[in-house]
Write a protein that binds this DNA or RNA. Sequence first.
DNA 1: AGCACGATGCTCT
DNA 2: GAGCATCGTGCTT
Length: 192
Amino acid sequence: MKNPLPRSFYNRPTLTVAHELLGTRLVRILDGARLSGIITETEAYIGKEDFGCHAHAGKTKRNAVMFGPPGHAYVYFTYGMHWMLNAVTEDEGFPAAVLIRAIWPVEGVEIIAARRNGRDTGGPAKLTQALGIDGALNGGDLCDPATGLWIEPGFPILDDSVTIGARVGLYTVPEPWQSMPWRFHITKEIRE
DNA sequence: AGCACGATGCTCT
DNA sequence: GAGCATCGTGCTT
């Protein structure tokens, strides 16, 4: 069942994409096994004007993928040990992306638990470790199953299950950017 | 349950 | 050379 969200899903305003990614299913094929989890937390990073966005300083080797077409993975390395997964949004040339911050494991739960040493997957670096996502996937097409990483339709999430707030970890980013309500997360338990 | 801190290496000035 | 879109441990309440 390979059913990636189409590129048109990503080629929309980043806040819309970030909100609608809640409840969708992040799928990873790792060593022939299908791992997946429901996305429960996202953040939007929007254009050169956004002081919290890597693209604020202009196009560089690291952030080049954000300037490319929507529906691709922007995967970068930070804090000397962590990989972060983003989905590129909006028109090619406009640098924006959605950071995937947390998943709820659904398929391959035993493998995920082993990869995480029994710990949770609620955190941007935790989920990349859980699913084996690293720099080799930077620039990969999320609309092509051959990449081994894509996002599928999942569960509908009611608005009253969603909390919107300020983005996390932007300690040195000036206002108003530090406080922009561009973080979305599911705050009610979801069940199959 | 919460806070402080150290780990660790790549990117850009 | 500074600064990270973080995590886990260990210590304090």
